[in-house]
Simulated assay, not measured.
Amino acid sequence: MAEETLTVVSGTVEDNVSDRQVEFVGELDGEEYQFAVQYDLLEALSGDVPDGDAVDLFDRYSDDILDAALSALGRDMEQAVVVVSENDLD
């Protein structure tokens, strides 16, 4: 059985500063899902609090973030927005 691969839909990554999260659309097996990556996850990966560079941090740690997002999606695929937090890291 092939491993599932979550990919970021091009042009969908946005920093939502007021909600302290980076939002993006991810595609898995032809289905699209809306994700929100909390700043605490970015901080856990980088060691720095996002300060105007959340999208850069997202890009730098995208492999780890996508693994965490896949884990978060696995909890409930029916969520309108899949929230990805530090708790989703392996």
Rank of each mutant, 00 (worst) to 15 (best):
E86S: 15
S18E: 15
M1Y: 10
E86H: 12
E43T: 11
D48V: 06
S10Y: 09
V22W: 05
S62H: 00
S46Y: 01
E3A: 14
G52I: 07
G30S: 12
D48W: 01
V8L: 11
V9M: 04
V13Q: 07
E3N: 13
E86F: 12
E32I: 02
G11Y: 00
L66A: 02
V84A: 11
D59I: 09
T12Y: 04
D90S: 14
V55W: 00
V81D: 07
S18A: 13
E43Q: 15
M1A: 14
E3G: 14
G74I: 05
D29T: 06
E14Y: 03
T7W: 05
D51Q: 10
L89V: 09
G52K: 09
E32W: 06
R20H: 13
A2T: 10
D19S: 10
E86D: 15
T5P: 01
L66T: 06
V37Q: 06
Q79D: 14
T7A: 11
D64R: 04
V84D: 11
A2F: 11
L70H: 08
T5L: 13
F58A: 05
E78W: 06
G52E: 08
D53W: 10
D19N: 11
G52S: 07
L41G: 02
G52A: 08
S62N: 03
G47F: 00
D48K: 12
A36F: 05
A36R: 08
P50G: 07
G52D: 11
V9E: 11
D19W: 00
N87E: 15
E86V: 15
Y33L: 02
L89T: 04
D67A: 10
E86L: 13
V37M: 09
L41T: 00
D15Q: 03
V83H: 08
V55S: 07
E23W: 06
F24Q: 10
D51L: 08
E31D: 14
L89M: 15
E78R: 12
E4F: 12
